[in-house]
């Protein structure tokens, strides 16, 4: 279990993490979602005691990370895949880590096998691809069989098979009762992995809820209605207290499902040309939620603007 209370971090004048309070519970995958520069990595570094919070505190299993006698056996973390010396072999990297926490050497072969790097274990990691580096990082995280696993952007650089593997792994770890915190800037990735979501933007918590709640609250849906007699239909639906938004010849109705609207309109003897449930995707919901907090937003290129003239 990870508990953060009022966690704040400033770098000079820049507020990177702004008063975050959250709890990461065991037995489920918690997705830590936000655009680039939202403060996810800084938060994770504070969890591991690498960065000092400017204010607030964070504890892992009830105490601060730095107070753990054998932290690798308590918390496994993939921070940056490239926190490696390029001249050291994968096996030697795991060897010194195992030695530092009193983990037996037999465990090294186990994790190498688990992440599929056993064949290249004695190669220098400087020759590894981004995906192999990620796999080694995950091997490091699992070295001590920790009850808490923290993975920062674990699918970066992985091929589709690797992405699916990480997804399954995260779900398995949570299924075993471990606390799993996975960060990503991709909503589509989280939608398939996470049970619970923490959404941050510009260092602030935008949403802390279950995946189902997030979908219900943010992935807005409406029913699209077209009729040759738009005005009459609009008046009828408004008369029943429904929310109607007229967009040209199309009505967007909220507050009742498609079947209900159909019965209502049919009951009044009006003709319908279209009756469709429209649900915005999670990706759109995430974009809408974080729209104001995107650190590096893009603007249309001037050439494109000219071309459309």
């Amino acid at each position: 279990m990870i508990v953060a209370r009022g966690l704040t971090k400033t770098f000079g004048p820049k507020l990177a993490v702004d008063d975050l309070s959250f709890t990461v519970e065991p037995g489920r995958v918690t997705g830590f979602l936000g655009p680039n520069g939202a403060g996810k990595s800084t938060t994770m570094r504070m969890v591991l005691g690498l960065d000092r919070p400017t204010a607030g505190s964070v504890t892992v299993n009830g105490h601060s990370y730095a107070d753990s006698a054998a932290p690798l056996r308590e918390v496994g973390a993939l921070l940056e895949a490239r926190a490696l010396h390029p001249g050291r072999t994968a096996r030697n990297h795991l060897r010194w880590l195992a030695a530092s926490n009193g983990i037996p050497r037999t465990r090294i072969d186990e994790v190498l096998d688990l992440v599929g790097l056993d064949a290249v274990a004695d190669q220098r990691v400087g020759r590894f691809s981004l995906g192999m580096g990620q796999r080694l990082g995950i091997a490091v995280a699992l070295l001590g069989e920790p009850p808490v696993v923290v993975l920062d952007e674990p699918v970066n650089g992985l091929d589709p098979e690797g992405i699916r593997w990480v997804r399954t792994l995260a779900r398995e770890l949570a299924g075993q009762g471990r606390t799993v915190l996975v960060s990503s800037h991709l909503m589509s990735e989280m939608a398939l992995t996470a049970d619970h979501l923490l959404v941050v933007g510009r260092g602030r918590m935008l949403a802390d809820c279950s995946m189902a709640e997030f979908i219900a609250d943010h992935a807005a849906s409406h029913v699209r209605v077209r009729s040759p007699r738009t005005g009459d239909v609009e008046a009828l639906l408004r008369g029943r207290g429904l929310e109607v938004d007229r967009q040209g010849a199309e009505l967007r109705v909220q507050g009742l499902d498609a079947a209900g609207i159909g019965e209502l309109v049919g009951g009044a003897g009006l003709l319908l040309h279209e009756l469709t449930l429209v649900q915005s995707s999670l990706e759109e919901a995430f974009m809408t939620l974080t729209a104001d907090s995107v650190e590096y937003s893009t603007h249309p290129a001037p050439q494109e603007a000219q071309a459309t003239r």
């Binding site: 519970e25 065991p26 037995g27 489920r28 006698a69 054998a70 056996r73 308590e74 530092s100 926490n101 009193g102 983990i103 037996p104 037999t106 465990r107 001590g144 069989e145 920790p146 009850p147 949570a174 299924g175 075993q176 009762g177 471990r178």
Partner: peptide, 19 residues
């Protein structure tokens, strides 16, 4: 989901309690 209290020592046989 039912959560299990994981004991770090149980999972890595041979690990010493305090490095």
């Amino acid at each position: 989901i039912d959560t299990v209290a994981l004991n770090p020592d149980r999972h890595v046989p041979g690990a010493r309690r305090h490095p």
